[in-house]
């Protein structure tokens, strides 16, 4: 087993070094919990797209005779206040929760990286101005900013993503700036400057790739909390709205029936929890693989 690994390393000396993608993948594969999480998210995401074709009930068919049913063989997860099949709704809604988590983290990270890079690289007045703006962004909790922005934009899938993307960017920008500051004074950047590279090239080719790795860990962990935040926004009525079965908004409408039909409340929450847990497990594995402090 060990020999095989050394062989592989010898054949591809570059790709399997610590920090590279194949290395991270091999570390994730070693952890059964992380793999379970990954498989769960992928499975539920794929099911979300094919469920309308394989399930007996559609997520939007209203069947007043079959209201408020508890889980049974005909309706595996029961039905809601309009007799819609919970399983079909949960699966159909999975893609919203998962993709909002992913895309909004991506948006935050990309915006944060751009802003942080500019602040870190140019320094001086630009840096000062950007940092003061970030101070304002971070002066109150992110979810309130997300609420305020989605109040401006109105409800909807893309609008939630924009709202959460903007409200989350400050953390990434700060981190990126700190990384850049430590890299800016390094010798290879000096070398690149000395052979007359353009500023854009130095930032894109030399600084960003080196500054980004701690951010990847941050992003991996961020997807989980973005998923939670997205469902909280929909729960409060600012995210994806009612007829769409986003899990948070399902919970929000099921809330009025908690006394008599608790299953409608329990089930979407369990799915949110399992999905976020999966993201956390995978993120944890990625962090262990990438964080040199933890690597023994």
């Amino acid at each position: 087993m060990k020999n095989k690994k050394i062989d592989k390393a010898a054949k591809k000396p570059k790709s399997n070094k610590p920090g590279s993608l194949p290395y991270v993948w091999s570390r994730i594969r070693q952890r059964p919990l992380a793999m379970t999480g990954l498989i769960f998210v992928l499975a539920i995401f794929v099911l979300s797209f094919i469920s309308p074709y394989i399930l007996k009930y559609s997520w939007e068919t209203i069947e007043m005779k079959a209201r408020y049913q508890t889980p049974s063989l005909t309706h595996l997860l029961g039905t809601d206040e309009l007799g819609r099949d919970e399983l079909a709704r949960i699966l159909y809604g999975a893609k919203y929760t998962i993709s909002i988590g992913f895309i909004s983290t991506g948006v935050s990270a990309i915006l944060g990286i751009i802003i942080g890079s500019i602040a870190g690289y140019f320094g001086g007045k630009v840096d000062n101005l950007i940092m003061r703006c970030l101070d304002v962004f971070q002066a109150f909790p992110g979810i309130l900013l997300a609420i305020a922005i989605s109040a401006v934009l109105g409800p909807g899938f893309t609008k939630v993503i924009i709202a959460m993307g903007i409200s989350g960017l400050a953390g990434y920008a700060r981190m990126m700036r700190a990384n850049i500051l430590s890299i800016r004074s390094s010798e290879y950047v000096e070398a690149a400057t000395s052979i007359n590279c353009t500023t854009g090239r130095i930032i894109l080719r030399h600084i960003i790739p080196n500054a980004i790795s701690p951010l990847i860990v941050q992003m991996a962990m961020g997807i989980a909390s973005a998923g939670l935040q997205a469902s909280a926004l929909s729960f409060l009525g600012f995210g994806v709205q009612a007829p769409t079965p986003e899990w948070g908004s399902m919970l929000s409408s099921a809330r009025s029936f908690i006394r008599d039909y608790p299953h409608m409340c329990v089930i979407p929450g369990i799915f949110i929890m399992l999905t976020v847990l999966s993201f956390n497990l995978v993120g944890d594995a990625i962090r262990d693989a990438l964080d040199p402090k933890l690597r023994d």
Binding site: A224, L228, S231, A232, F235, G248, L251, R255, I258, C265, V266, P268, G269, I272, M273, L274, V276, L277, F279, N280
Partner: peptide, 10 residues
Amino acid sequence: SMPNFWLALM
């Protein structure tokens, strides 16, 4: 991983 509002409801 638990949403706080869901935990509250539970």
